[in-house]
């Protein structure tokens, strides 16, 4: 049998079933959490957990709907964690579509923790300009955003009161990024130029590329893909869409591995036949 002759629609059907069936009939495979400091997720959780009540963090939603299944659960879990610790949350977006996801993450658990817009959280909205926008945000956030998403003057917003130029008063920057502008810009400007602690949440495919920043200490935490989001959900004890998606991802990975092995067996058999 030749691999080229193999109908790839068979593979597509297997992958579709591998994703759909575990979503409809959850297997409830336990999600392990590595509680060592080598784990970027645990390090991020620990950092937010160690912040005193009344601190303020900035979360930048730098992604579009394509990456939302991986990054939005991270945002929701982190915002919920911040709410539970009475930490103020400021959100920005370097991607226009990120604004809606910031709003979704801010409101997901606001009622549970009795948090109010402007007193406990604020959505500043989108800013064009990529790395230059990051530079301006870090240098003077209130000047860069004179108004929030709902048109309220940032000078009058209570949660922004402790925040001054050079992001003084902001304990931590978190970027949930699906590409550029995103992690690298926040590291170069926020961490390297202004010395702010930066945590990154990124898609699974880009996580290996950001690993050197985590190992060097330029990133204080790193959450990669749905697995990272699921781990964070487990840590804050709020299982959500990422946790429920891990069964499907497990089975899909297994099927891809089976296909790789199968492809190699066919290749080796064909090669032997050719040699003979």
């Amino acid at each position: 049998m030749k691999i080229k002759e193999f109908d790839r629609r068979i593979i597509f059907i297997f992958i579709a079933l591998a994703v759909i069936i575990p979503l409809l009939l959850p297997l409830n495979i336990p999600i392990p959490v590595d509680k060592s400091m080598n784990n970027g997720v645990y390090r991020a959780y620990n950092l937010i957990d160690s912040l005193p009540s009344g601190s303020v963090i900035l979360i930048s939603f730098d992604f579009d709907p394509a990456a939302a299944p991986e990054l939005l659960p991270m945002g929701q879990a982190m915002v919920a964690h911040a709410y539970s610790k009475d930490i103020g949350v400021i959100t920005t977006a370097l991607w226009p579509q990120g604004v809606r996801f910031a709003e979704e993450a801010l409101l997901a658990h606001a009622h549970t923790y009795q948090k109010e817009r402007w007193n406990d959280f604020v959505n500043l909205g989108y800013k064009a300009g990529g790395v230059v926008a990051i530079d301006n945000i870090v240098e003077d956030i209130k000047k860069t955003y004179p108004l929030d998403l709902y048109g309220k003057s940032t000078a009058e917003i209570p949660v922004l009161q402790p925040v001054n130029t050079n992001l003084e008063g902001v304990s931590l920057i978190i970027t949930l990024s699906a590409g550029d502008p995103g992690v690298i810009g926040w590291v170069q400007i926020g961490r390297d130029r202004y010395g702010k602690k930066v945590i990154a949440g990124c898609t699974a495919v880009s996580a290996p590329a950001y690993r050197p920043y985590f190992n060097s200490g330029q990133l204080s935490g790193l959450l990669g893909g749905m697995a990272g989001a699921a781990e964070y959900e487990q840590l804050v004890n709020l299982p959500g869409t990422a946790s429920s998606g891990m069964d499907a991802q497990s089975i899909a990975h297994l099927f891809i591995i089976i296909f790789i092995i199968l492809g190699n067996i066919i290749y080796l058999v064909n090669r032997r036949k050719t040699v003979k």
Partner: peptide
């Protein structure tokens, strides 16, 4: 938009096999 990105799983599986 999410659907477009999800198609990647199918192509990754097919490409890995081939």
């Amino acid at each position: 938009n999410a659907t477009m990105f999800s198609l990647l799983a199918f192509f990754v599986a097919s490409a890995s096999f081939r």
